[in-house]
Structure formats: C-alpha cells, structure tokens
C-alpha cells in the first residue's frame, strides 16, 4: 500500500487477510508508519500488542501494534473464533495483551523457519493474559 489507507475498524483487522493470516505489506506499513494494525489510524501512547502466551515469552509478536481499545476489540471479536485473522493458524493456549511505550521492528534472517517480521516491545507497562476461548 503506497497511498495512505482508509481508516476505521472493519470486518477484518487492517493488517489481516482473514484465513490467510497477516498481510505482510501492511504489517510493515503499520510498523514504519506507526499506525494501528486494527483500525489503521495513528497510534497513541501506550502502544498495545495482542498475541499468544508464547509470543509474550519470546517477546516477539507477529500482529502489529494497535491502540489499547483496538487490542481489546480484537481480543473480544476475533481472538475467540478467528485466530487466523490475528496471525495464529490455530487457537493458542492463552491470549495476551501487553502495553508498551516503544517497540523494535525485527525483520527475519534467511535461515528463520518463520519469515514473518516480529515486534519486540522494549518498555512494557502492562500485561494482561486471558485463557483462549475455544469455539466449538
């Protein structure tokens, strides 16, 4: 996306291709333009990240930064039943939301099994963990 995006929360997060996972170009755009991965508007402070417990342990999130309210929206609307839209092909054991002031955007090396870029929060302010609600 070379032009600026339209903004607002839609059927899907801005950075997502639904069942196909995350849109890598938009993930990069969110990282560098510092816009929200859910609504595509400029980020506020603090920045929120949504992901799995494992991502928190590794301090490496795949879904781009979001507003806090957008992160809560994502956890409520997409995480329980459509984890792929948040970059998780299968439901993780738990979902987390962390808020941070800053983050590092890390592109992957050639030998990485997963070539998707990741985000490493560098000044975490808050962690909120919720068990995944598995859809039946």
């Amino acid at each position: 996306m070379i032009d600026q995006p339209r903004t607002g929360i839609g059927e899907l997060p801005f950075a997502s291709m639904g069942d196909l996972g995350l849109d890598k170009k938009r993930v990069t755009q969110c990282a560098l333009s510092r816009i929200c991965g859910v609504c595509a508007q400029s980020l506020d402070r603090p920045v929120a990240f949504v992901g799995s417990g494992e991502e928190l342990e590794r301090n490496a999130f795949h879904f781009p930064p979001t507003h806090r309210a957008c992160a809560e929206h994502a956890l409520e609307h997409w995480a329980p039943s459509w984890s792929a839209s948040l970059g998780h092909p299968s439901q993780p054991e738990s979902w987390v939301m962390v808020t941070t002031s800053g983050f590092e955007f890390v592109r992957q090396n050639a030998d990485a099994a997963d070539r998707r870029p990741v985000f490493s929060p560098n000044s975490i302010l808050e962690e909120k963990r919720t068990p995944a609600l598995r859809s039946t």
């Binding site: 402070r45 800053g102 983050f103 000044s123």
Partner: peptide
C-alpha cells in the same frame, strides 16, 4: 522522535505518537 528513536524512554511528550 517521529521515527520512534526515543519511545523507549516512556516520556509522554517525547514520543512518536504525540
């Protein structure tokens, strides 16, 4: 600042979003 070079300081004023 707008590159996020100082976001790690957690300063509400010196931040890429503000």
């Amino acid at each position: 600042v707008m590159h996020g070079q100082w976001d790690w300081m957690n300063d509400p004023e010196i931040h890429s979003s503000t």
